[in-house]
Design a protein around this nucleic acid. Sequence first.
DNA 1: TTGTAAGCGTTATCAT
DNA 2: ATGATAACGCTTACAA
Lengths: 336, 336
Amino acid sequence: MTRKVTIRDLAEAAGVSVTTVSQILNGKGERFSIDTRTRVHQLQEEMGYVPDFNARNLIMRSAQTIGVIVPNLGNPFFSMFIKGVQSTSRDRHFIPLIFGANYDEDLEGYYLQELIKRAVDGLIIASSSITVDAIDNILKKNGIPYLLIDQNGGPSLDSVRIDDQRGGQIAAEYLLSLGHRKIAVVMPANPTDNLVVRLEGFKHHLAQAGVALPDEAYIISPMTKLGGYQATAAVIKQAPTAVFAVNDEMALGLIRGLHEQGVRVPEDISVLGYDDIDLDDYVVPKLSTVHQPVVTMGEQATTLLINRIQKRQLAPQTVELPVELQQRESTAPVSK
Amino acid sequence: MTRKVTIRDLAEAAGVSVTTVSQILNGKGERFSIDTRTRVHQLQEEMGYVPDFNARNLIMRSAQTIGVIVPNLGNPFFSMFIKGVQSTSRDRHFIPLIFGANYDEDLEGYYLQELIKRAVDGLIIASSSITVDAIDNILKKNGIPYLLIDQNGGPSLDSVRIDDQRGGQIAAEYLLSLGHRKIAVVMPANPTDNLVVRLEGFKHHLAQAGVALPDEAYIISPMTKLGGYQATAAVIKQAPTAVFAVNDEMALGLIRGLHEQGVRVPEDISVLGYDDIDLDDYVVPKLSTVHQPVVTMGEQATTLLINRIQKRQLAPQTVELPVELQQRESTAPVSK
DNA sequence: TTGTAAGCGTTATCAT
DNA sequence: ATGATAACGCTTACAA
């Protein structure tokens, strides 16, 4: 491997100054003769010149990079989110640095620090446990634009808003319409803001129909397949005719658990999820759920963030995204 | 947001030179008085000084960064792989830049270029379609260390080796032991190297037992859940008593397809997967499969790569990782 | 139409 | 025990 070719080498070879090369290669070369322009471009190809990233960033004070922290890359919900982030980043010539924090607060802190050290231009944080403190201290202090997902109440300037209230309502009305009146909820111990409003919406619309949701109806378990599975016994103990799991992963785990206990879904118990991950169509029974447009969420989040990076003065931006019922096989009318 | 504090500000505040500060902060400050040392450290805290990443990299010619390209972040197999990569990267104080290329050759090329532009110190490529050409041209030319996954035959110096031959053998012997003699295989159109040896192993051990695998027994479909699902009709047409899917995702899709057609798994047809993703335990029936230690693969790949980055002269390194049968519910003795 | 030179923030060499 | 000073490779006023 030979030494890397620098802009100076290229300039020398072309018999011009580095300024000339720099300008031309950065699309600001109208003022140079067409002759030198082509010569420079040709030599670039031949010599395989690539601008040194660090040198360039040093002077431009930007690496065209955003940081993304999600709780769990293994959850298809987040891998779809990432998909949206990656495609928009590509369009905007940014690169996302992606980290899965495994629902671990220390890990989140570590990655947050690391991303800031690396001078990312902005951040998307879809992570439960990053404290508003950390955000205020670290991000605001550094003046780094950021955007919070799953934290509607958060303090970030811009936001992509999912109407979780409405999502809860949809879930409630659907279950109600099937005749369910004894309903359980499966949720995590420390729900993020979006979850609490989702659940509020759910509870509220149930109440309107005269259906109560007592404390025992809330079953606490981690938001993973395993968490859902582990909630099985508690669910059975409640003997509901339907259960609303706050995300699909839990719903899937629960369905498996129910199956093992000989409880039929949906004949004995209906199970309704939330998110609409790709898996829903492949399990038996297919999972009914509330659809979130997660790829779009990733795209919009990225768009908003990059807009802000490029124009700090922009008025706060918000985009609202709809949720909708996705009816499949895990829910059915209550049997008398 | 105030201007970023530089090493010069810190030096000034401490009443010393930048050299002093730099040395002390980089752990090379034994020669300075304990007094100045503590003063510098204290001021760093107070002023919140963080070295500028780009400036530092410019002179050190390394960003402590590796690039990782996988075909599909949505496949839990790869998200587990990433998990391994991230944890080892963390231990070694590297940051992985992760991209999912959606099985798209153009995308892979784009990301490869981008990663090289960004001067990553090394690359892990777990991607099917990156041509050996591209690798030779781009990576070798730039002298960037890299490591190929799923391409055992590839030209990379170091490698983490999974004994796919043995994996195929395990699958064959297991199916044979259950009495199966009419067997189909579900595989993609352009199998990576590891897949072809896996399949060779499978075929070979079947043949040893006198069981043939004619051309029609190979059913071609994309390596996704949908791909497996779409293979359903072709599988049924073959009327095998068992099918071996080259990865779990396909197996899952196929099981769903079979279910819809009223074919019972495993009673009518046994389905054996490959990979052992977390989902296997949650579907009905639980998926029998050949386990790959994928988190370890990610960890080892990262270890080898970083070793090489730090010591270019190292002798070629190889680590061998075992596969083993993971028997669950989707396979059963052939029924007469 | 082109070039000179300053400067980005850091580390490293070599004096003192 | 400490500091000048020269890089690193690039962009960009400002001159010519």
